[in-house]
Design a protein around this nucleic acid. Structure first.
Lengths: 142, 142
DNA sequence: TTAGTTAGTTAGTCAAACTAATTATATGGA
DNA sequence: TCCATATAATTAGTTTGACTAACTAACTAA
């Protein structure tokens, strides 16, 4: 199985993604905000307010799943919803000031483990991972 | 934020891992074997029989979690357990022939989405992802 | 020998995902 | 215009995979 064989690469990437997430999951307990919620919040902060459906599509989950995630974020005061004036069925979800603040702290705490390891790598390897991450994000699109 | 800044790279890798796994998750339903089980099975096939504790460590989950995963695999006929002759507390978990067969079919089906996209990339980019995957697996090790 | 450790299991809880069903609103065609 | 269909969001119920805590059994060392 050649190193660049598609199935092999797919397999290793798959394993790598699973293990990487497991490795950083230990930071979840401290933050009080779980990975899926932080990820959704991150989209709201960086891409701006959007409908629940758009957010669900962006995060690649069903509307039902996102509805619950957003409800939780709302209870925690990290996001808010308001009626879409142009479509009474719709809501606009946006991050609150608290949400923005928590995002940064949360991200940092969550990623500290990863970052600590990354910072020990030579710059070229970090650059390689940065390029790979962008490629992976492309691959994950639809 | 420089492209090779550790926090930035950590953030993008984190997002990439989340979205990549969500993207391939749609294949779960077809295979009948979920990602964590397939991942554990994969370890058993490629690294050989091992104790439950060793498997849990390898997969970075608690022994309790692995105990349940292995129990499920056993019910599905994909793995088997037998007493460790040298330590009556221990068990040796190993993949069955059916497990090996399922692994390959399952992996292929699960990874088909990824692989289809990967095969369209130029070889250099696949090589980059292959290198990145190995780095990520290293990073994930405690 | 007995105290402490290790291997594994079981019970109970939780988050996050899904599907199916429900409600409300929009919209396009006869 | 009005009805059928489509879309937005929610709710209910289920499943999976993760955890901790508590337990039994077996090993090990002081």
């Amino acid at each position: 199985m050649a190193r660049t064989d598609s199935l092999h690469v797919a397999d290793r990437l798959h394993s790598a993604a699973i293990r990487l997430l497991r490795a950083v999951r230990v930071a979840d307990a401290e933050t009080g905000v779980t990975a899926p919620k932080l990820s959704a919040l991150s989209v709201l902060v960086f891409a701006g307010p959007m409908s629940l459906t758009a957010l669900a599509r962006n995060e690649q989950v069903t509307a039902a799943t996102m509805s619950k995630l957003v409800a939780d974020l709302e209870v925690e005061g990290l996001a808010s919803k308001r009626a879409d004036p142009a479509d009474k069925r719709g809501v606009r979800v946006e991050a609150t000031a608290k949400g923005r603040a928590i995002l940064d702290a949360g991200r940092k705490r969550r990623l500290a483990l990863l970052q600590a390891k990354l910072s020990q790598l030579p710059r070229e390897q970090r650059a390689l991972l940065a390029d790979a991450a962008e490629l992976m994000l492309e691959l994950a699109k639809s």
